[in-house]
Design a binder for these strands. Structure first.
Length: 575
RNA sequence: UGGGGUGUCGCCAAGUGGUAAGGCACAAGGUUUUGAUCCUUGCAUUCGUUGGUUCGAAUCCAGCCACCCCAGCCA
């Protein structure tokens, strides 16, 4: 899929893989496996969707099957082409290719309508005049059975007539609905004569103004699955209670009729109905994943947009520097099961570090510059030092790093009064400039307020590529030439929330859990010139700091902006 | 208190009657011109709980407990 050096996570055993293997062994679908990813285009895709995408596409790919992309667009009021486009883009970016053309539930509105007529003719559906509030009353409660609609016994002929007129737009929104005739006393509330069609005089992003009535999810999804010959309809746990309705709908229809409008229309194969299987959706701590939450954060400008690098959206994560491979690996490593679980953010962080450690070129960038003057280097000297782009992979090549009399190191790499175990520069002490010489700090220069403004150091000229004689220098520090380095802006991103479950009802407002330091912008960072010339690379490791990527949305020709994807693991600062 | 689910290490998760995989996290060592990477080692006599069946149970049975989902003309 990519030439990523990080090994792709090996497929793990899970109950869906087992189920599919069993179905294959039983020859249930003549050896065919066909899945689908069915997003509603009412928001951007997030890491939770990625789990479902990876599952559906992988299951298909592993079994020489197919996976469709089908937009479940039955509620036009909430949907838009912007979302359709972003979703297609994100799936492609993740590295998956859907089977054939993009599908839409709305593509099948005519068939869906005809099947509804069939249900009416079979006395399995009726037109109901109860309004929303009345319907709620009639539905009963969790512990009490519901009551039948007064219209439940409306003659078939009249239902047919009314339904046709609903389609023509004769009635206003909510005036009438088409309902399945199942069982108002069913303990499963989804079976208490659920609504199949509602009247909505709204413009649809795919069908325009053709329809005044729109089918509901439960009625639509199963039939679309059947039409597309989906064998395994995978969805999340909350749809478990809907499975009986899924099956009721398909079993209520004439299967020959279903086959006639399906992709198997001309095939002699036995027609097999799709089956729904549920799995637990992905939850991640320190984040909020609900579409409503994400939308609200965008609208109230808690973040800069759907693609804010702190968002768990694929667009946000991509901008943050996450690679598609790392997200795929993450989804594989969290597994697929039926128990509600919350995955630790640390796992996600591990998978991106794993990928970037193997694949990102190393570069030096000083975040908080402290000037060093190397007193025994002449002022006009510029030495190009050749440094490996990766400590382990020679094939990643080398680059030139200019070395001059004045360089910057990070302020945190010098301490006048070092804590125990400090391995960096101290007055009179030595440290190795990474890929360069060992230097000694001879003099500390401060301003009037006592702040250190410059260090005057001397280099040991025998230490370029050599260990110093007669002593050990433990510390290695990154640096950038003051005259050759380029000023850039660096955005330090951190978790958006400070608590594991920011959306928990134990907090009255999730905003109180926002991490005030989730974005820290550093304006005067200095990066080595080579980092800006490798145009084809977007992910870097800034040595000793972390992984960063160029923000190509906000960067300008004169000022480049880098986003921190994730820090390096740090076993020192915690001590 | 109706219906549907789930409970295996701090977090994911395999396991489907033969005596507890793996990953993350954590801890301790080693290597290292990134306090990174890498390597080594450690980390559940026990599978929500109580009983039962069995030569043998995380796996089968029964009860109990905890948690999640469902009363949109959302998906």
């Amino acid at each position: 899929m990519t030439d990523s050096k990080a090994a792709a996570a090996a497929p793990h055993s899970n109950f869906i893989r087992n189920l599919v293997a069993q179905d294959l062994a039983d020859n249930k679908h003549q050896g065919k496996i066909h899945t689908r990813f069915p997003p509603e285009p009412n928001g951007y895709l997030h890491i939770g969707h990625a789990k479902s995408i990876c599952l559906n596409f992988s299951i298909a790919a592993e079994n020489n099957g197919h996976c469709n992309l089908r937009f479940d667009d039955t509620n036009p009021a909430k949907e838009s082409v912007e979302f359709v486009e972003s979703i297609k883009n994100d799936i492609k970016w993740l590295g998956f290719e859907w089977s054939g053309e993009v599908r839409f539930s709305s593509l099948y509105f005519d068939q869906l309508y005809n099947f509804a007529v069939e249900l009416i003719e079979k006395d399995k559906a009726f037109v109901c005049s109860l309004n929303a509030e009345q319907m709620r009353e009639y539905r009963g409660s969790l512990t009490e059975p519901g009551r039948s609609s007064p219209d439940r016994d409306r003659p078939i002929k009249e239902n047919l007539d009314l339904f046709a007129r609903m389609r023509e737009g004769e009635f206003g929104d909510g005036e009438l609905s088409l309902r399945a005739k199942i069982d108002m006393a069913a303990p499963n509330i989804n079976l208490r004569d659920p609504v199949l069609y509602r009247i909505r005089h709204v413009h649809h992003h795919q069908t325009g103004d053709k329809w005044k009535i729109y089918p509901t999810y439960d009625y639509t999804h199963c039939i679309c699955d059947a039409i597309e010959n989906i064998t395994h309809s995978l969805c999340t746990l909350e749809f478990e209670d809907h499975r009986p309705l899924y099956n009721w709908t398909l079993n209520s229809l004439d299967s020959a009729g279903l086959k006639r409008v399906s992709d198997l229309a001309d095939s002699p194969d036995t027609y097999v109905l799709p089956e729904q299987t549920e799995f637990a959706k992905l939850k991640l701590n320190y984040t909020m994943m609900g579409k409503r939450n994400l939308k609200e954060m965008v609208e109230t400008e808690v973040v800069s947009g759907w693609n804010d690098p702190r968002m768990p959206t694929l667009a946000g994560m991509r901008r943050r520097g996450f690679t598609a491979a790392s997200i795929r690996n993450f989804c594989e490593s969290v597994g697929v099961a039926r128990s509600d679980s919350v995955v630790d953010m640390g796992m996600l962080e591990h998978t991106i570090r794993e990928d970037l450690d193997a694949n990102a070129s190393r570069v030096m960038c000083v975040l908080k510059p402290l000037k060093i003057t190397l007193t025994n280097i002449s002022a006009d000297e510029v030495v190009q030092l050749s440094m490996a782009n990766h400590p382990k992979y020679e094939e990643k090549g080398r680059r030139n790093v200019p070395f001059t009399r004045e360089v910057y190191i990070d302020r945190s790499d010098f301490e006048e009064v070092p804590p125990n175990g400090f391995k960096r520069l101290i007055p009179g002490g030595e440290v190795r400039l990474r890929g360069c010489y060992v230097i000694r700090c001879d003099e500390v220069i401060k301003d009037d307020s006592g702040e250190v403004t410059e260090l005057r150091c001397s280099v040991d000229k025998n230490t370029l590529g050599n260990k110093p004689e007669g002593r050990k220098v433990k510390g290695v520090v990154h640096w950038v030439s003051a005259s050759e380095g380029v000023e850039v802006t660096v955005r330090l991103y951190d978790r958006l929330f400070t608590v594991e479950n920011p959306g928990s009802k134990e907090y009255e407002d999730y905003r109180s859990n926002l991490n005030p330091n989730s974005l820290v912008t550093l304006e005067n960072c200095v990066i080595e010139p080579a980092a800006l010339s490798s145009a084809d690379e977007s992910n870097f490791q800034f040595e000793r700091e972390g992984y960063f990527c160029l923000d190509d949305i906000d960067s300008s020709a004169s000022k480049k902006i880098f986003n921190r994807t994730i820090t390096l693991r740090d076993s020192w600062s915690g001590k």
